[in-house]
Design a protein around this nucleic acid. Structure first.
Length: 873
DNA sequence: GCCTCGGAAGTC
DNA sequence: CTGGGACTTCCGAGGC
């Protein structure tokens, strides 16, 4: 029976069939618009790559193609096609291989040739050649349909499992995949469609394990099927728990697998326990941990298991592992990273979510004495990751990114920026007959390229300032100067009119001569973003919130993607890069911004600060203009007038300096700007387009600060911007006195820093010596060691919280106590009052120095010497 | 006790 | 193995 529908590609792979003749079938795991999952078996694509004669073009030379044809893995060598390369336009012969896995070997055998397009995963090749994105329409023959397949298909499909399996295998598949529908189709049956929100299924799970033996005590899982959740509990023998989880995964067939810290805890623990329970052969572990979206049979011994290459992301064939911890860390950048802390951050009013009712460091005792409470705790920690992903819109964002970068959702979620960009650049290169070079392996040292320009900033307060910045600066520069590896001029004699970079004189061809790939892609993306934004506004106007949400995700994804281009092209290893490209982009950026700075200053306006693509200019309001609103109607009127003049000034500057391909936007108006004189550190009172306080770089923004310092500094900035300098200094002194008095809640003094480490499986312990020159000299490493000693989880790269205590036993170094109260409760440590008072005074003193009150004066405090604390008054 | 230096993390 | 550089800050080590 034939079926056709729209779906979203989650992930892809392929099957090689060797007899009677070699063929390769692409497997695409998809989620259909109607809600069921689909495995597509795609026929008709053959593995290939291109070869050309090395060096400069020589059209007379007759290379020995016969010896290429004679290689066993080579099926066919086609007639030559002319393709552009860095050395000129050359003949390229397409070599068809028997199987994708032979290509690596063929590359070696063809070392004397210039081999291109030879490192592209086969499933990506399909998406490139058919110009597919993640959202496709597919038409094909139904080979098998399960319970959740659409009714009509289900009723007329093969109900004899064995017969169905034979059919699938005949069509190149591996067997009955654990999906709702298996479809066989040809290249002609696939086409790209408009993006839509696919109804993905997510599996969230959590294990509770014994600290004494690592054994799994119980587990919980929640399935989220397009918003509807079902809860599952597992207890009993460890084997039963693992089999239960695995059966649930295979039966419910999720696209995403989540949980909190699954990458570093739950998945490795599942792998380890499966090995303990069922040592060998490996395949016997599949009922325990066979989460791969492939048939459970011996031939799938590799793909059936989740795997992880040395400290990298997990792969579960056909599915997407997505750790809620990692997503939260990336988007929220929380000061601490425990699940309790993150849920407190997201849902401060909801106490039930994180009642501390189980001591995770004494799990064996807890499990023995009150298993029901542990189970409840486990279930709750299975819902929270779904709540977090939902809050962060993590899945919708990955789907949108896949849609604009034209990759699978898996590549958008777990791939690298260079893979997203490859997808767009390579398909345009193929279309334009530009040879696709290989990504060169091995580290290549090269000189660092210069980056953005940062203007000196004077210490002190400035009233009424406008902030302008270049819209998408680096992409705009790449577009307007036609910067691309295909337009780079290397021939010294080439004297046509070019775009020439300002300092090193690197030349790029004019658009007329050759429009670069990258500039064209960026231009297209910019246009797309504007389109999405306009569409979003229209959807909002007609109250279509679903469409508005989708378009908002898409425009945001375009922004992310555009901003990734510069980094990839400035890197040393990317296939289309050249060190001159990255250098000329920043050269133009520095040139443009410096040019504007000098023109603004020539026009009689003062430039206060500038960083890479932004410029802060003093607004020419009356020198006595108030920076604050007032009860006094006269003063308020003057304030309004100053604001109006500033807005006019900002608009005027923006239009004066906007050029074709370099749009300067008026971003914000500040009634007051302050810096203590360090670059990348400033605060401002924003009066337009919103009213808010802007803080950049200061401790307030840093996770290695502590709450009390951040809060005091924020309050100080509020007062300073209000013009109340004396009040700010007095308040600060009081805060320092209070901290020195020893009466501050230690939870407000927790400092946290990320800590690296390596697991030494031989010694069965964490190793810090191979990562740090002097690990015990670093407070956060000492804190991490205490955490581990207390029986708590440690993950390389995790943020470790600690409090500074008085040095012990004549030690010169700071005393350090890990902060474990969030996780296991207990008495908080006693903090080092002198250390905290000094650190507060140092950080805050740097700021108040501008008003003549430095670190020393702040430390002297508001009270006479010798008095214990303010409470003694 | 003061200073400089290098390692490391963090932010923009 | 697989985006970039500029800049600030903190801490410990070590010289004097």
């Amino acid at each position: 029976m034939e079926w056709e529908g729209r779906m979203c590609i989650v992930s892809g792979s392929y099957q090689s069939i060797d007899s009677p003749s070699p063929r390769t079938v692409v497997e695409l795991w998809c989620r259909a618009e109607e809600g069921h999952s689909v495995l597509l078996l795609v026929h008709g694509l053959r593995p290939y790559f291109d070869i050309a004669v090395r060096g400069a073009p020589d059209h007379e030379y007759l290379p020995d193609l016969e010896s290429v044809r004679e290689i066993a893995e080579v099926m066919e060598v086609s007639e030559p096609v002319m393709k552009w390369t860095r050395h000129g336009v050359k003949r390229h012969w397409r070599v068809y291989a028997d199987q994708p896995y032979s290509v690596r070997r063929l590359r070696k055998k063809l070392e004397d040739w210039e081999v291109t397009s030879a490192d592209i995963p086969f499933q990506n090749r399909l998406m490139l050649d058919l110009d597919l994105g993640p959202h496709i329409s597919a038409r094909g023959d139904v080979l098998w349909a399960g319970e959740r397949a659409p009714g009509a298909v289900k009723n007329s499909s093969n109900t004899d499992l064995q017969l169905a399996e034979e059919t699938v295998v005949k069509e190149g598949g591996s067997g009955i995949y654990p999906v709702d529908m298996i479809l066989s189709c040809n290249l002609g049956g696939l086409s790209r469609t408009e993006p839509f929100a696919a109804p993905f299924v997510t599996f969230s799970f959590d294990l509770e394990t014994s600290i004494a033996t690592n054994r799994i005590l119980c587990a919980a899982a929640v399935i989220d099927r397009a918003g509807k959740r079902s809860e599952h509990q597992f207890r009993g023998e460890e084997r039963e728990i693992m089999e239960g989880l695995t059966a649930l995964v295979r039966e419910q067939d999720p696209d995403f697998v989540t949980g909190y810290n699954i990458d570093n805890f739950d998945l490795p623990r599942m792998e380890e326990r499966a090995e303990v329970i069922s040592p060998r052969p490996k395949y016997t572990r599949s009922p325990l941990f066979g989460w791969g979206r492939v048939p459970m049979k011996e031939g799938e011994g590799k793909r059936i298991f989740p795997t992880r290459q040395q400290n990298r992301v997990w792969r579960i064939p056909g599915r997407i592992p997505m750790d809620a911890w990692w997503q939260a860390r990336q988007t929220l950048r929380p000061q601490r990273e425990s699940l309790r802390y993150v849920s407190q951050l997201l849902w401060p009013e909801d106490d039930d979510m994180r009642k501390l009712d189980v001591d995770a460091s004494k799990m064996d005792e807890e499990w023995a004495s009150r298993p029901d409470v542990v189970m409840e705790y486990c279930v709750r920690d299975t819902h929270l990751p779904l709540d977090i992903l939902g809050h962060l819109k993590a899945i919708a964002r990955k789907e949108a990114l896949a849609s604009v970068s034209l990759t699978t959702v898996e590549t958008a979620a777990n791939g690298t920026t260079s893979q997203w960009i490859d997808s767009l650049v390579m398909r345009l290169a193929d279309k334009e007959l530009i040879a696709v070079p290989m990504t060169n392996a091995g580290p290549r040292k090269r000189d660092q390229i210069a980056g953005g320009y940062v203007h000196e900033v004077e210490p002190g307060m400035e009233p009424w300032v406008v902030v302008l910045d270049f819209k998408s600066m680096y992409p705009s520069i790449m577009i307007s100067n036609n910067i691309c590896s295909t337009t780079l001029v290397t021939n010294e004699d080439d004297d046509k009119s070019h775009s020439v970079s300002p300092t090193t004189g690197t030349r790029y061809k004019s658009k007329e001569e050759m429009n670069g790939l990258v500039p064209r892609l960026l231009e297209d993306l910019m246009g797309k973003r504007d389109l999405y934004k306009r569409g979003m506004e229209e959807a909002q106007e007609r109250n279509d919130s679903v469409e508005a949400f989708l378009l908002d995700q898409l425009q945001y994804a375009v922004k992310i993607l555009m901003n990734s281009f510069y980094g990839v092209f400035a890197s040393s290893f990317y296939r289309f890069t050249h060190p001159d490209l990255g250098a000329s982009i920043t050269e133009w950026a520095r040139h443009n911004i410096k040019e504007i700075i000098s023109q603004v200053e020539e026009g009689g306006n003062e430039v206060i600060y500038s960083d890479t693509d932004s410029i802060f200019v003093k607004s020419p309001v009356d020198s006595g203009a108030p920076t604050n609103r007032s009860e006094d109607p006269m003063i308020s009127k003057e304030w309004e007038k100053a604001k109006e003049e500033t807005l006019e000034f900002g608009d005027e500057l923006a239009s004066r300096f906007t050029r074709e391909g370099a749009e300067l936007e008026f971003e914000t108006a500040l009634s007051a700007f302050f810096s203590h004189g360090a670059k990348k550190r400033y605060v401002g009172r924003v009066v337009w387009p919103r009213e808010e306080m802007l803080i950049r770089g200061y401790e307030v923004r840093r996770t290695d600060s502590f709450d009390l310092l951040s809060e005091t500094m924020t309050e100080m900035f509020e007062m300073l911007l209000d013009g109340n300098t004396q009040g700010a200094v007095d308040m600060t002194k009081l805060a320092i006195d209070e901290i020195r008095g020893g009466d501050v809640d230690p939870s407000r003094l927790v400092i946290s820093r990320s800590c690296k480490g390596k697991w030494n499986s031989k010694k069965n312990e964490w190793d810090f010596d191979s990562v740090y020159a002097n690990p015990d000299g670093l407070p956060y490493v000492r804190a991490a060691k205490q955490r581990i000693a207390a029986g708590l989880q440690f993950t390389p790269g995790m943020k470790v919280g600690y409090v500074i205590t008085k040095p012990e036993g004549g030690d010169k170094k700071l005393g350090v106590k890990a902060w474990l109260v969030d996780e296991i409760g207990g008495e908080p440590p006693e903090y080092d009052t002198d250390y905290y008072a000094k650190r507060m005074a140092k950080s805050l003193g740097r700021v108040t120095e501008a008003f003549g009150q430095g670190e020393k004066e702040l430390l002297d405090g508001a009270r006479p010497k010798g008095q214990k604390s303010l409470l003694d008054f």
